[in-house]
Computed example of a mutant assay.
Amino acid sequence: MNTSLLSWFVIVIALLAASLPFFTERLFGLITIKFRKTVWLRLFELVVLYFLVGLLGTFLEAQAGNRFEQRWEFFAITACLFVVFAFPGFVYCYLRKQSFE
């Protein structure tokens, strides 16, 4: 598979994973819970999904054959990017006008 295509694949997966905690009331989109999700639970999901997407990216990079060392700057930038990717889900969950029909 093309390296550029793998990069775009990881970016799209990160965009979807970052918004997932805000679009559903299920834990990680899979597990039904009996109570309404709090902000802290959503943030916990966001952190876990960040690391899962990071593991996927590392695995795909290793499969492509050019695994590079990442330092703290890489993780700071990708964490900020992941939070930016979560913005549409945050707006959908907390900032949009609720309709009471």
Rank of each mutant, 00 (worst) to 15 (best):
P88L: 11
E73Q: 09
V48Q: 06
L95H: 08
Y94T: 00
E69T: 08
R71K: 12
V91L: 14
W72E: 04
E73S: 07
Y94H: 14
K97S: 14
F75I: 09
E69W: 07
A76N: 10
C93M: 06
C80H: 10
V48R: 02
V83S: 02
F59K: 11
E69H: 11
L52R: 05
V53K: 03
A76F: 08
L52P: 05
V53G: 05
F82I: 13
F85N: 07
W72L: 10
F59A: 15
A79N: 12
A64K: 09
R96H: 09
K97L: 07
L81Q: 06
R67Y: 14
A76P: 00
A86P: 08
L52M: 12
A86T: 02
N66A: 10
V84P: 02
V91Q: 05
V84W: 04
E69D: 11
R71P: 01
Q70R: 12
P88C: 12
L55P: 00
F75T: 02
L56R: 03
C93P: 00
L60Y: 09
R71Y: 14
L81E: 04
L56G: 00
F90D: 02
N66E: 14
F75S: 11
V48S: 00
Y92L: 13
E61K: 05
G89P: 11
T78P: 07
A86H: 05
A64V: 04
V53P: 01
V48G: 04
L55S: 01
L81G: 04
C93T: 09
Q63H: 00
Y94S: 02
T78H: 06
V84I: 15
A79I: 15
N66P: 00
A79T: 09
Y50S: 01
V91I: 14
Y92Q: 15
F82M: 04
Q70N: 12
E69Y: 13
F51I: 13
A64G: 05
V91S: 05
R67V: 07
A86D: 02
R96T: 11
V91W: 13
E73R: 06
L60T: 09
R71I: 14
F82E: 09
Y50P: 08
L52I: 11
G89L: 11
F74E: 06
G65V: 01
R67H: 11
F75K: 03
L55Y: 08
